[in-house]
């Protein structure tokens, strides 16, 4: 059985380490904040200019001057700080953020990532994604293993415009987890009820299988 959105977020949350400064993208990555392990303290950065992002506000505390990069209303914490977009991306580009978790449309076997544009169909823009994948120390990518029509999204080469080249460190799909070691993907974990054969069928990218491949019953 494939992992649900919540389970994928839970799996991604296992990458968080105590003291990390973390940037979470829009969608499933935002859910990761709900699964921060006990005894782990992380500081969330929002690239529109805030460190120490708090949870959604209570209804009577909503403030239009306080939003995250997904334009959702949020709250502040005692340790929060605000700064300009230039300062925000200085900390991103300068390698001060430990971990970024973001969504993808396609990932390639060399770590290329595409998540901002479908030519002729969808024009939204890259926002801060290109800066994040170029500057953040570890990049965790989350996506469905296949497209709605069943075609693979983990490919030999992306055919969509890239967000960054050779930038993916860990790929978490609803079926499996791949770690990029020296630029090469290694299958390290399988979702419950998924076997290596199924992954092979649904993946175009070439990868190796970790000898200690972990088969999950469910995410803890």
């Amino acid at each position: 059985m494939a992992w649900s959105r919540e389970e994928i977020a839970q799996r991604a949350a296992q990458e968080l380490q105590d003291g990390f400064y973390v940037n979470l993208g829009i969608g499933i990555p935002t859910l990761v904040a709900n699964y921060i392990p006990e005894n782990v303290q992380v500081t969330l950065e929002s690239e529109n200019g805030m460190l120490g992002m708090g949870p959604f506000p209570y209804p009577d505390k909503v403030d239009p001057d306080l939003i995250n990069a997904g334009k959702q209303t949020i709250s502040e914490l005692p340790q929060s700080s605000y700064f300009s977009s230039a300062d925000s991306f200085a900390m991103i580009r300068g390698g001060h953020i430990d971990l970024a978790i973001l969504g993808a449309m396609q990932v390639a076997q060399n770590g290329d990532l595409a998540n901002w544009m479908i030519p002729g169909k969808m024009i939204k823009g890259m926002g801060g994604a290109m800066d994040l994948v170029a500057g953040v120390n570890k990049v965790v990518v989350i996506m469905d293993h296949t497209a709605k029509d069943g075609s693979p999204k983990f490919l030999k080469a992306c055919d969509l415009p890239l967000t960054g080249s050779d930038v993916t460190d860990l790929l978490i799909t609803n079926l499996a987890v791949f770690e990029f070691k020296d630029g090469q993907p290694v299958l390290i974990e399988l979702a419950p009820g998924v076997d290596a054969e199924e992954i092979k069928e649904k993946t175009e990218a070439e990868y190796t299988v970790c000898p200690k491949l972990k088969r999950h019953l469910h995410i803890q």
Binding site: S85, A86, S88, A134, G135
Partner: peptide, 30 residues
Amino acid sequence: FNPQGTLAERCRAGGAGIPGFYTKTGVGTV
């Protein structure tokens, strides 16, 4: 389209009299 951080830095540089700067954001992309 400009990557968000590149856009912010382009404004910062322009205001600070810096005509250009190097960044790794966007390398290998359009």
